[in-house]
Design a protein around this nucleic acid. Structure first.
Length: 301
DNA sequence: CGTATTTGACCCGCGC
DNA sequence: GCGCGGGTCAAATACG
């Protein structure tokens, strides 16, 4: 993570529908070759397409190597090629690899357990790049800020949040891309063991985050449970985000006070299940974890 | 007064 | 071994 200065510009790819964040990199690139570094500039930004405001095409989930994810979270985002969609986000995820990489369990884990000499396996992570003016995007959970650090090569600080639920160890980091201040990079680490404290409302961006989050989680879980899946890196199940047409902007959506439930309704078939079905080769009932957190069971049927 | 945020210090891993 | 940078802690402060 000490070599992020040079961020290769993303090659704008003409994603179907013509939209943005379109840049896929090879796995080698993503893994930094042998460096294990993940450049956000290399992230397979999701080729979300904006059609009439709604986004179709889900950000591909990426299995990020430990060191890579650690390196990152962010900041490395190169300038996302013009985003034609007003709201777009990309997701990358990190496979947990709980037992195998105690070593990779750096900083975060070590920190909290080093005192006891116990290493904690790292939590799965996934990052979202969201174009928004709001730093801390609502995702339905309540977060408590526990730190903030200036980030090298970035004028924007990185904020650290922890889920307020004492039993939940989920953390998230929020920072703005130095390349594109309009882009907020949110990195989640861990999985909630409880439901949302409240549904996000008012902003469809919230849904994007929440939905992407859920999908990412599902994806991670699917992969985790299916050890044989060696490389389902890019998946882009179609997702229809409702109300985008009426809410061109990510923040505030005064004109589309669509209740969360409706959003979820529209989101069916949920991206998560789609992911699950694809990645976990037909296990529609992948655990409910995040999906459950975000989409009420009743809504998923 | 309880809770959340701010912020400087500290610890640790990694690269040189 | 040293320095740098990331991540976390915890006391102080702000806010409701």
């Amino acid at each position: 993570m000490r070599s992020m200065e040079e961020l290769p510009p993303l090659e704008p790819v003409d994603a179907s529908g013509g939209s943005s964040w379109a840049a896929f990199a090879s796995l080698e690139d993503l893994c930094g070759g042998g460096g294990g570094e993940l450049d956000w500039g290399h992230l397979p930004l999701c080729p979300t397409t904006a059609e009439g405001g709604s986004i179709s095409g889900f950000p591909p989930l990426l299995d990020v190597p430990e060191s890579a994810a650690a390196a990152t979270a962010g900041e490395r985002s190169s300038d996302p090629p013009a985003v034609s969609a007003d709201a777009a986000s990309s997701v990358s995820s990190e496979e947990p690899a709980p037992e195998s990489d105690e070593k990779a369990t750096n900083d975060t884990a070590n920190k909290s357990n080093s005192k006891k000499g116990i290493k904690r396996s790292r939590q799965p992570r996934f990052a979202f790049m969201t174009k928004s003016e709001i730093d801390h995007l609502e995702d339905g959970y309540k977060w408590r800020k526990y730190g903030q650090k200036a980030v090298k090569n970035s004028p924007f600080p990185r904020s650290y949040y922890r889920c307020t639920n004492s039993k939940c160890v989920v953390k998230k980091r929020v920072e703005r891309s130095s390349q594109d201040p309009a882009v907020v990079i949110t990195t989640y680490e861990g999985q909630h063991c409880h439901h949302t404290v409240s549904y996000p409302r008012g902003s469809s961006s919230h849904l994007h985050v929440a939905t992407a989050f859920a999908a990412a989680a599902q994806r991670l879980r699917a992969l985790s449970s299916d050890s044989t899946s060696s490389s389902p890196l890019y998946l882009s199940p179609p997702i229809q985000f409702p109300d985008q047409s009426s809410t061109p902007s990510l923040h505030a959506t005064p004109t589309s006070p669509v209740p969360p439930s409706e959003h979820h309704e529209h989101l069916r078939p949920s991206p998560a299940s789609t992911f699950a079905e694809r990645a976990a080769s037909g296990s529609p009932t992948v655990d409910e974890g995040l999906l459950g957190d975000i989409v009420p069971p009743a809504m998923r049927k």
